[in-house]
Design a protein around this nucleic acid. Structure first.
Lengths: 129, 129
DNA sequence: AAAAAAGGTCTCTAATTGAGACTTATACCC
DNA sequence: GGGTATAAGTCTCAATTAGAGACCTTTTTT
């Protein structure tokens, strides 16, 4: 919808950042990745191996599990450790940074659990119309 | 990755819910919708009209703006009001439910702003390797 | 008379995701 | 010994989703 830029946008540009590299968006993209938060939540209980994570999140594909874990590793939220077993196994665990994300994330989850009835009700009304 | 189900999953099923209708996932999907949170954040400053929102979020397409607003409306987070001007205009505003979401959302944003330097650093290390 | 603006919808294309086969080496089972 | 399973992925192909932008209707502005 690129059109006439708004003032806020101009301010941002003046400060040297595009909507894309705004820090807010970057985290939101993370939460937005849909699987990454779920993975972090699984790892909250302790380190897990690749296939264990897959079993805990039964509707994720291997492809997305791999990719989400790489993203989290790249951002320093998750640590990957290879064990020299036969066959080699890999454990994933939260870093301090990853753990620090759980606070805000639980804020969202608590909100979700508390407000879900209202949301369901709103959906009922909307869908009936 | 459907395979041998895990105990937690069994418990969930016993309680009657699939991974899909878990409340946590539903909110996460919302945040995960990528645009919805950004829209809510724009509406925090007050009601906005369709095109104004589009201008504030210059990289959203009309298609996704419409769809995201409908989703938010359906979930009772945003209210849509049509004014009988020529041509008719439409204003979107936060409902109480929508406003209540901002607290947890800002928790996430504050985390983002505080931890972004660490994330950037981790990315640098990862990408160099 | 032409163009713009309001709030969308519609189509077509591009990007992302999911499903599932395949890999390589070792261990367990009969 | 032979068949099968497991580890953690990778790869390909199909399906879903998102983005770009034309188009719509009515009225005001230039």
């Amino acid at each position: 919808m690129r059109d006439i830029p708004t003032n806020r946008l101009e301010e941002w540009k003046a400060m040297g950042f595009e909507p894309q590299n705004c820090p807010v968006r970057q985290v939101l993209d993370h939460v937005a990745a849909k699987w990454t938060s779920l993975i972090l939540l699984e790892l909250e209980h302790g380190p897990q191996r690749f296939n264990a994570l897959g079993r805990a999140l039964p509707d994720i594909s291997k492809r997305m599990l791999t990719q989400s874990l790489r993203d989290l590793e790249r951002d320093g939220m998750v640590a990957r450790e290879v064990f020299d077993t036969k066959p080699p196994s890999v454990a994933y665990s939260l870093t301090d940074l990853g753990r620090s994300f759980l606070g805000p994330l639980h804020g969202l989850i608590d909100w979700a659990e508390g407000r879900m009835p209202e949301i369901e009700a709103a959906r009922g009304v909307f869908d009936a119309a």
